[in-house]
């Protein structure tokens, strides 16, 4: 058995491509619900055309599962995301396949979560850890 990559809209890059064949799904229900205009869909599409990824349309979970089955995969690798819809798709996939969520290189390394009440509090914690002194 093997691994496939689910590329979603928060991670249109080559980072995970070495791990297996990749698929991106344009889920029309999601696009319509979010109100993505032609500009937005076209921009995403052009980003995808530079990457070796199969572009599909349809219901996301269904298409990713079909893609995994076509490649005899029992594992899906994806980039972790705070987007509730992406998380929901990941959770649905997990009912059938093993799902590995990869965290991209952080902007700044912090031990623990900073105070996020206001940007100023976050910045007070972060500034000295960035190479801009």
């Amino acid at each position: 058995m093997s691994t496939v990559v689910w590329m979603h809209e928060d991670a249109v890059n080559g980072t995970l491509l070495g791990r297996g064949p990749a698929v991106f799904v344009f889920d029309e229900d999601y696009l319509r619900r979010e109100g993505y205009t032609l500009k937005r869909v076209g921009f995403l599409y052009e980003c995808l055309l530079e990457l070796p990824v199969e572009i599909r349309k349809g219901e996301a979970v269904e298409q990713i599962l079909a893609f995994a089955a076509e490649h005899d995969a029992d594992e899906v690798v994806m980039q972790a995301s705070p987007n509730p819809w992406i998380r929901g798709v990941g959770a649905a996939l997990e009912r059938v396949l093993k799902v590995r969520r990869m965290v991209p290189e952080p902007f700044v390394e912090l031990g623990g979560q900073p105070d996020l009440k206001r940007f100023s509090r976050y910045w007070a914690r972060v500034e000295s850890r960035l190479p801009i002194g």
């Binding site: 890059n13 990457l51 572009i55 972790a80 969520r101």
Partner: peptide, 30 residues
């Protein structure tokens, strides 16, 4: 659980070979 991964990305041209052709009704044009 989430795992970490490096993200030093090269130019897209490095990724050009082996573009999938797509198959089936759900596959979109490239």
């Amino acid at each position: 659980m989430a795992e970490k991964v490096g993200t030093r990305l090269g130019p897209s041209t490095l990724l050009q070979p082996a573009l999938p052709r797509g198959s089936g009704p759900a596959a979109m044009k490239r």
